[in-house]
């Protein structure tokens, strides 16, 4: 079903603050198999100029996607979540996420379109710390596949 284009530009205010813990970063780094000491050793992180251990670049997705799920599940938007696949993902960092951060995400629907029966929505998540400074922006493009195809992945031609 086609999405309502009037949703473009709609913003969703931050929900609960996400507090970044050292052990969560360690768990994530281990799960991606990355032994970089900047993720687990505060002294190693400090030697690189960071005030505490930092998170791997894609860690921010767990935070931004939690906020984006509120958008995706907005019944007025009408996205069929059961058919959603991840199309594109992009991050732009002002600084790495680090332990001790208290982060808030503001989500905005940047574009909605329908292409060959697929519904495509791009959500921008602006992540700020407790002092209001920008940390990272995450762009997530989701594709709800047309109901009559059973292809895996996606074959969209949407812009990034």
């Amino acid at each position: 079903m086609a999405l309502d284009p009037s949703f473009v530009g709609r913003s969703y205010p931050p929900g609960a603050v996400y507090e970044v813990g050292r052990e969560k970063i360690r768990e994530f780094a281990e799960a991606i198999g990355d032994p970089n000491p900047a993720y687990v050793d505060p002294d190693a992180a400090k030697a690189l100029g960071h005030s505490d251990v930092i998170a791997p670049p894609t860690f921010a997705f767990a935070i931004s996607y939690k906020a984006a799920s509120l958008v995706i599940s907005d019944p007025e938007l009408g996205l069929d979540y059961s058919r959603v696949v991840h199309g594109d993902q992009k991050f732009a960092y002002s600084r790495p996420v680090r332990a001790g951060d208290r982060l808030a995400v503001t989500s905005t629907i940047e574009s909605v379109k329908s292409l060959a029966g697929n519904d495509i929505v791009q959500i921008r998540g602006e992540v700020h710390d407790a002092s209001g400074e920008h940390v990272v922006t995450a762009w997530t493009k989701l594709v709800s596949r047309a109901a009559d195809t059973a292809e895996s992945g996606n074959d969209t031609n949407g812009d990034a």
Partner: peptide, 13 residues
């Protein structure tokens, strides 16, 4: 060496 050197990163799946 410093993962903080990454300023932007994007992919298409």
């Amino acid at each position: 060496v410093d993962p903080g050197a990454v300023e932007e990163y994007g992919v298409r799946f």
